[in-house]
């Protein structure tokens, strides 16, 4: 059985350091398995979040050898046996302990997004939506809220001061999914411009690169949002858009 050196961050906001652990890994194991093995045998109090162990819940985000990743979807056979593997908590949020951070920022931002405002139903009382009209939004709904995109976004990663005025890529896709929702009637362009701070994004695409769900955050959500925000400042384009979007509503 190959043995690896895991260099794991241990500590709390007052002090911390990377500690080396020697752990065996069987065929097919992922980083989270090895962390669990550590917990069971060498460090019972090692703090880590996880739930599904299958890339579905977005709990186990960490920075592995500097890369923001899900621990449960990172296979050990990616790494060479001799080199130490560093596992650190995601950096953009305040540390609680070891690999666990306080991601409360995201839950606060979530509350600010104006929710769906439902349009009236069809005359027969139902709502109809065509698959092709929701494909794009279903892509956004794949988000597992791992917050890795929030973690890498340079607007907030090392800039605490930007946090109040910036919702971050996770919430740009949330915003976009509501804006494009066939049943929604609310206009969130002003919100996107001011409260959410869409303008602060300069399309580096770092968020898209780390998204474990492969959501095209920048191309499919942020850029269209930016266009809408820009258009909303131009009354003629805005009117045209309203007119067009009404016509595309299913009858």
């Amino acid at each position: 059985m190959p043995t690896f050196t895991l260099r794991v961050f241990r500590g709390d906001p007052t002090r911390g350091e990377f500690k080396d652990y020697r752990v065996e890994a069987e065929e097919g194991m992922v980083v989270l398995d090895v962390i669990h093995r550590l917990q069971a045998t060498q460090a019972t109090d090692l703090a880590v979040r996880w739930n599904c162990k299958a890339g579905k819940c977005g709990s186990c985000s960490a920075e592995i050898d500097g890369q923001p990743r899900l621990m449960c979807m990172t296979r050990m056979d990616l790494f060479a046996e001799g080199e130490p593997i560093t596992v650190a908590p995601i950096r953009a949020f305040p540390l609680i302990r070891d690999l666990v951070t306080d991601v409360g920022f995201n839950f606060e931002k979530a509350k600010t997004i104006p929710p769906l405002r439902l349009k009236p139903p069809e005359p027969d009382g139902t709502y109809r939506m065509m698959q092709e009209d929701i494909d794009r939004i279903q892509e956004f709904h794949k988000c597992i809220e791992c917050f890795l995109c929030q973690d890498v976004c340079h607007v907030i990663r090392d800039h605490e001061e930007n946090k109040p005025a910036f919702a971050g890529p996770r919430f740009f896709i949330k915003l976009a999914s509501l804006e494009m929702h066939p049943l929604d009637t609310r206009d969130r362009t002003a919100f996107g411009r001011t409260t959410a701070g869409v303008g602060l994004c300069n399309i580096t695409k770092c968020c898209t690169e780390v998204c474990p769900e492969g959501i095209h955050i920048t191309d499919n959500a942020i850029i269209p949002l930016k266009e809408r925000v820009a258009d909303s400042l131009d009354p003629i384009v805005w009117l045209l858009r309203k007119f067009r979007s009404q016509k595309t509503q299913p009858v």
Binding site: D12, Q39, T44, L46, A47, I96
Partner: peptide, 13 residues
Amino acid sequence: AEGARTYNPGWHT
């Protein structure tokens, strides 16, 4: 349970 009360999975288990 070993360690402290902050986020301690061993204690939770």
